[in-house]
Design a protein around this nucleic acid. Structure first.
Lengths: 221, 221
DNA sequence: TGTAAATTCAAACAAACGTTTGAGTCAATA
DNA sequence: TATTGACTCAAACGTTTGTTTGAATTTACA
């Protein structure tokens, strides 16, 4: 196992390997895999091109490392949902924190999230792995919480629709970032604005769940 | 002005220019600008490479043409919102139809929408133009409808948040397509499934608007 | 200090990219 | 038939891409 990556972001006095990794993470997250060249990474990281091959084999290996290494496994977050005593409010708080917290201060977390979101739209090949290990368990955990709070005994398509719409609001904070920054930047800029956005997401999610509950009540009469 | 592009999708017996344009639209929409090569387009369209330069100047010109030509201006859709007599229900129906209808049968409309959504995540340079001409007016029109139905006299950040969350659900049908197809494909496959998704989106949006209305009521006591 | 491994470096590599060339083909017109 | 303009084609262009090379340099350890 490699040493745990230093989480401090001042990108100076880092070991070459870490400097490359963080620079690559930033460029991949901002520009995507194709638009980012190894020369650009090497230049910005102030290392020789061949250092990339030396440490990571090739560009794809670097991408994979940037994708996997900086963040630990997301299982901790998922266990949050598995707690049977968790309230709906708490579950939603935790869910959306995964989207809003990275936008606050932690540049590393933000870049990691951005990269993972990008993989959703621009699959590079790690996608199949990511959807199985990262997204699907999350979706399943959310389904379990929703199923419980709607008093259902099986997951149906409409529950999938509800889960998808709830997650969509969080995803959009990253996917639609450029648009948001142009149209209403304040809602993702600064801690207070983000906290307020977080509260609204929770509120909206709760209202959607309530609406779905009512719809099912009406259908079952 | 060029002749209007034929909207029929059987890609045979088309003029070379149209064949290139439709093939490029498909590949750009599926793979993005960078991953799509002019050779790939030429091969799939069964034309010589240099035909692309002949008809469109260069790759960027072809992309621009594929981005702009197939769809007319979206002003018709926006005028839908400007009707002062429109109900909230109708406005939301119209809004989400813009996302669900292209997924039904119309392959051309679906590719166009996908390409425009992709531009949001992977800006190529047309982005600034698209956000000004395509997205911003839409967002503004939605804000007007929401403002009216919440009885507000000015647009504030929380109204932006509401609008963003509503739009996010529609956008996610395209941005998260691959994920959806893996986790719950039925909600975007087939007309009946899409119709049901459409109805849920409207219902969720209405519940979010209601929640926001109640929140403001509580704040103002 | 001496030796071997680890790391860095400038340079070159083949392949793929977008683009251009110039001869060639075809249909229409005079 | 001769000529023009629209269009097609195989081939080559110059760049940039990711990758590799092999010698230099630094580091670690006996």
């Amino acid at each position: 196992m490699k040493d745990k990556l230093k989480l401090s972001m001042p990108e100076q006095d880092l070991q070459p390997r870490e400097k490359i990794l963080l620079t690559a993470l930033e460029l991949f997250a901002e520009q995507g895999f194709e638009r980012t060249t190894v020369r650009q990474i090497a230049r910005k990281a102030e290392v020789n091109i061949s250092a990339i091959a030396y440490y990571f084999g090739d560009k794809a290996g670097l991408y994979q490392a940037a994708f996997v290494e900086p963040l630990g496994s997301p299982k901790d977050d998922i266990e949050l949902f598995n707690d049977p005593n968790i309230s709906l409010e708490e579950a939603l708080q935790g869910l959306f924190s995964g989207f809003t917290e990275p936008l606050k201060q932690d540049k590393l977390a933000m870049l990691c999230t951005r990269l993972h979101m990008r993989e959703m739209v621009e699959p590079t090949g790690l996608w199949a792995q990511e959807i199985d290990n990262g997204i699907a368990p999350y979706h399943q955990a959310l389904l379990v919480v929703l199923k419980k709070h709607l008093y259902l005994n099986k997951v149906d398509d409409d529950l999938h629709r509800l889960a998808m719409c709830i997650v969509a609001m969080g995803v959009h904070l990253f996917v639609g970032r450029d648009v948001i920054e142009k149209l209403c930047p304040k809602i993702i800029a600064g801690n207070s604005g983000l906290n307020q956005t977080h509260d609204r997401l929770v509120m909206f999610a709760k209202s959607m769940i309530e609406a779905e509950k009512n719809r099912r009540k009406q259908v079952n009469v």
